[in-house]
Design a protein around this nucleic acid. Structure first.
Length: 274
DNA sequence: AGGCAGGTTCTTA
DNA sequence: TAAGAACCTGCC
């Protein structure tokens, strides 16, 4: 179906923003998006219109929420004062169109456990191998090739350590295995955690094997859509050190600091940070 | 060849 | 409690 979107919405920037690893541009310029065992192609048309390769019902009940289309990122961006915070303003102009997707906490947990000390292409490669090994075919199309679903906790927990090792997880294989066992066994119920208070949720996440401050904050932001979370990776730390020596004004942007983090992260990777 | 990449755990003081 | 080392793998 065709949808007109007047708010910030840039498929390429979202795909490259580092929050998602199975959101890819296809040969024809459309984007392949996978989430919660579903898959669609989305294409940009003229005049802020987009074609979503799904029914109106699927769009209204699922994808609209997935893309967080009820929240005005334009308004949130408008809070940034170019005089007060020129660096963030530049970053937000550059990153205009980024949105925080409402992704699956299970997929995000495993994805960000894998992400530690890896660059984005390496993260994507590992996840792709996992999906081929333990996911199901969701789509087979010449523009995208075969698309597999993200493995369920049961399927991932059933993989041997040799199979996990074949996905280039390196020393993270034991973290992934443990997380899969915890969730598959029911000892950890990620979906049940969504109603927890911030601090309690953060404590639970930090208690997982292989999950430290950075990964927990990514899970918090991208898996639970807690938009005030502000994950600090090497890029963000460089920005904070160089551009915010007196501290980042978190209070000015609450409860949306996570969106500001995305602009800063996206911008920092091209800025050179001199 | 040696260093580093969207960190975390483990060990040692 | 805090600093330092070790860790898989792939790519400069």
């Amino acid at each position: 179906m065709i949808v007109r979107i007047d708010d910030d919405f840039d498929l390429k920037k979202i795909a490259d923003s580092g929050q998602c690893f199975r959101f890819n541009e296809c040969a024809d310029g459309s984007y392949s998006v996978s989430a919660f065992g579903r898959h669609i192609f989305v294409s940009e048309l003229e005049d802020n219109r987009y074609e979503f390769g799904c029914s109106k019902e699927a769009f209204e009940t699922f994808w609209k929420d997935y893309f967080d289309l009820d929240l005005s990122y334009k308004d949130i961006r408008g809070r940034i004062d170019p005089e007060e915070d020129p660096y963030l303003y530049s970053a937000s102009e550059y990153g205009k169109g980024i949105r925080i997707l409402k992704q699956d906490p299970w997929e995000m947990l495993i994805s960000f456990i894998i992400s530690q000390r890896k660059n984005i292409p390496a993260i994507k490669a590992s996840i792709e191998k996992l999906c081929r090994l333990a996911g199901d075919v969701m789509c087979e199309d010449e523009r995208s090739g075969v698309i597999y679903s993200f493995p369920t906790p049961d399927r991932l927990a059933a993989l041997s350590m040799e199979e996990l090792a074949s996905c280039s997880l390196g020393y993270r294989d034991k973290y992934v295995h443990q997380a899969a066992m915890d969730v598959a066994s029911g000892a950890v119920d990620l979906y049940d955690w969504k109603d927890l208070e911030d601090q309690e949720l953060m404590d639970k996440l930090m208690s997982l094997y292989g999950v430290g401050v950075k990964v927990a904050n990514c899970e918090f932001l991208f898996g639970y859509h807690r938009l005030d979370a502000f994950p600090k990776d090497v890029w963000i730390n460089r920005v904070l050190d160089l551009k915010y020596p007196d501290g980042f004004p978190f209070e000015a942007y609450a409860p949306y600091n996570g969106i500001m983090q995305q602009y800063l992260f996206f911008y920092s990777r091209m800025d050179g940070l001199s």
